[in-house]
């Protein structure tokens, strides 16, 4: 069954210099229980896409889509109140920087318990006055939500969860904070977890632990995960399927295995060539020349064309449609790749 179905999603910001199209007509599909990767350089629009799904994009951002279906329901048609009920409950998010994503003035336990109270029937008021009372005189340690918070800390491997729950975020290490973030995100057993670069700010050893945790979560909570990263190694290790994004557009999608064994889009190939690999030692890494264009009125059809070693004149003029370039489900948006079944997929 489909957990998330995105078709032709656009996120635009009206600025003084023109319209910034951070996400430009993107399709994405996540099945139940899948871990789907979203890969791209900084500035490719990955995070904006994730925040668009949860409708977290602030003014002047504008999200439109032909379809933005979560479990079959159109998220763009929901009221803000309905979205508030979904956020943290059915869809939740882990952010990149655990140093800044937890509130420094609220105990870790309360930050988890709050989410539980908001979305689960634990018989505790979440009115403003009740929440302020908790903030000022402290939350009850005997409450169901607090008990759940400790349970969650335990399940993300925080030692001594009872006493650590009363700690403030600054008393946690970076890795522990990210675990606490994961605990918040999972406290209501969401159907979809969006992890926005969850390991980027962490040490490599901690990274591995966090990724392992994400794996375990999938089994225990039966949660689908959208894993956003610029780290291809993380994708290879974790994801079932991968989407590659460049300058606001999808350029290639495939299973993780296909993508690494048989990358087709020139951008994906260049990205892999610029990534160090342990198995096949290369003398020199090849950086991709140039930078991601600013997403204001990009004048050429294929956004990668100016940096592409294979670009010809028509690349700048003809919109690249997706085509099958390998085994079932392996598609790339590049007119220089012949479709293996002779068909071009119309995406708009």
């Amino acid at each position: 069954m489909t957990m998330l179905e995105i078709r032709n999603l656009r996120t635009e910001f009206e600025t003084q210099r023109g319209t910034v199209t951070a996400v430009n007509g993107v399709d994405l599909h996540i099945d139940n229980g899948e871990i789907v990767g979203l890969v791209g350089e900084s500035g490719s629009g990955k995070s904006v896409l994730a925040q668009s799904v949860m409708r977290l994009v602030e003014d002047p951002g504008e999200v439109t889509a032909d379809e933005l279906l979560f479990k079959g329901e159109p998220l763009l048609e929901k009221s803000e109140a309905e979205m508030t009920a979904i956020r943290g409950n059915e869809i939740s998010m882990v952010f990149q920087d655990p140093m800044n994503s937890l509130n420094p003035t609220i105990t870790v336990g309360e930050q988890i318990a709050e989410t539980v109270r908001l979305h689960q029937d634990v018989g505790e008021s979440v009115s403003l006055s009740a929440e302020m009372k908790r903030k000022i005189i402290g939350a009850s340690k005997a409450s169901e939500s607090w008990r759940r918070a400790i349970e969650m800390l335990e399940s993300v491997q925080i030692p001594h969860p009872e006493s650590r729950a009363t700690d403030y975020p600054h008393e946690f290490s970076g890795g522990m904070r990210q675990r606490a973030m994961i605990a918040i995100a999972l406290s209501c057993e969401p159907d979809l977890l969006i992890a926005d670069e969850p390991t980027t700010a962490l040490d490599v050893t901690i990274q591995a632990q966090i990724l392992e945790e994400l794996h375990d979560i999938l089994e225990v909570f039966d949660t689908s995960i959208l894993l956003i990263t610029h780290d291809l190694a993380v994708v290879a290790e974790t994801c079932d399927r991968v989407n590659v994004m460049y300058a606001g557009e999808m350029v290639e999608r495939a299973t993780a295995r296909d993508l690494f064994e048989n990358p087709q889009h020139p951008y994906t190939q260049a990205l892999l060539a610029s990534t160090p690999q342990v198995e096949t030692a290369v003398d020199e890494l090849k950086p991709i020349p140039g930078t991601v264009p600013e997403p204001i009125d990009i004048p050429y059809a294929c956004h990668f064309a100016p940096r592409c070693p294979e670009a010809k004149e028509e690349c700048f003029e003809v919109d690249p449609a997706f085509r099958r370039v390998g085994s079932e489900g392996h598609e790339a948006a590049c007119i220089r790749r012949e479709p293996v079944d002779g068909e071009v997929i119309e995406n708009e």
Binding site: L56, G88, N89, S101, L102, N103, P104, E114, L118
Partner: peptide, 16 residues
Amino acid sequence: AEYMKTAKAKGVGRTT
């Protein structure tokens, strides 16, 4: 701040 985005993503209402 980032943690305000976290709060929104958790489903905390505007006034709270």
